[in-house]
Simulated assay, not measured.
Amino acid sequence: MTRSGTGQDRVYQALRTRILEHELGPGSRISISGEAQRLGVSQTPVREALNRLEGDGLVVRVASRGYAVTPLIDREQLAELFELRLLLEPWAAGEAATARLRNPARLLRDELEVLERLRGTEQAVQAQRALSDQRFHEAIVDAAGNGFLTTAVDRLHAHVHVFRLHQIDAEGRETYREHAAIFAAVEACDPTAAEAAMRAHLHGAFARLSAPAGADGITPRAARSHLR
């Protein structure tokens, strides 16, 4: 599955960015008329965008209130989410690390360069890091060539979005190091190394994302099975 932007996606991308950058915070109500006025469009494309964002897991429909940004998941739910990621994404990395024409090494290198250029800890910069991280993982999952996996991982990543601006790796250095290891394995067409690098990255990401929420000591079961 490919992801390409078109003019029709403008409203969707604008709302998604506002959510990822916390201009619309977790649990906040979204005014369809207000967003239509702000973006200079009718209410129809805003409704269509919200339908898409609901499918992404970024907004929820609230009875009699329209739409709201998805609330922050708790630390136990975060652990469960990473358990599933640990089952899916290392396999995807191994599949991507092949000599096939869709090997995503070039795309991964591009995102590493983006991450390296981003400096500072302000919220907008961290949001850009989050988007780069998302594109990095999307490239790997897309290269695995399984549409069901793509859909599943997209929804999992959506639930992590509110944690990304509150992790201890505020400047993205650890994320860069872990992404670089995944890139090196994919570029070398080494599936075993790619799986191991992705697993190490997910362990690190979970630790960074959960620590500020007071989840120290909580380890996903799938992660524990690989640490024995």
Rank of each mutant, 00 (worst) to 15 (best):
A127E: 02
A127G: 14
Q128I: 01
R129Y: 13
R129F: 09
A130K: 10
L131P: 11
S132D: 00
S132P: 04
S132Y: 11
D133G: 14
Q134W: 15
F136H: 13
F136C: 11
H137I: 02
H137S: 12
E138L: 14
E138A: 14
A139F: 04
I140V: 13
V141M: 12
A143V: 11
A143S: 15
A143Y: 12
A144L: 12
A144F: 14
G147C: 09
F148P: 14
L149V: 10
T150P: 00
T151V: 10
V153M: 09
V153D: 05
H157G: 07
A158K: 11
A158D: 03
A158Y: 15
H159V: 02
H159E: 07
V160K: 07
H161A: 14
R164V: 06
H166W: 06
Q167V: 04
I168D: 12
I168V: 15
A170V: 11
A170M: 08
R173A: 04
T175Y: 12
T175G: 09
T175C: 07
Y176H: 13
Y176E: 05
Y176V: 12
R177T: 11
R177K: 09
E178T: 05
H179R: 09
A180H: 04
A180R: 11
A181N: 03
A181K: 02
A181P: 07
F183P: 14
F183H: 14
A184E: 10
E187S: 14
D190T: 04
D190P: 00
D190M: 00
T192Y: 11
A193T: 01
A193L: 02
E195Y: 01
A196E: 08
A197F: 06
A197S: 08
M198Q: 08
A200C: 00
A200S: 14
H201T: 03
G204N: 09
G204W: 01
A205L: 05
A207M: 02
L209C: 04
S210N: 07
A211C: 02
A211I: 06
P212K: 07
A213R: 02
A213F: 04
A215Y: 00
D216V: 03
D216C: 00
D216S: 08
G217F: 05
T219M: 02
P220S: 06
A222H: 04
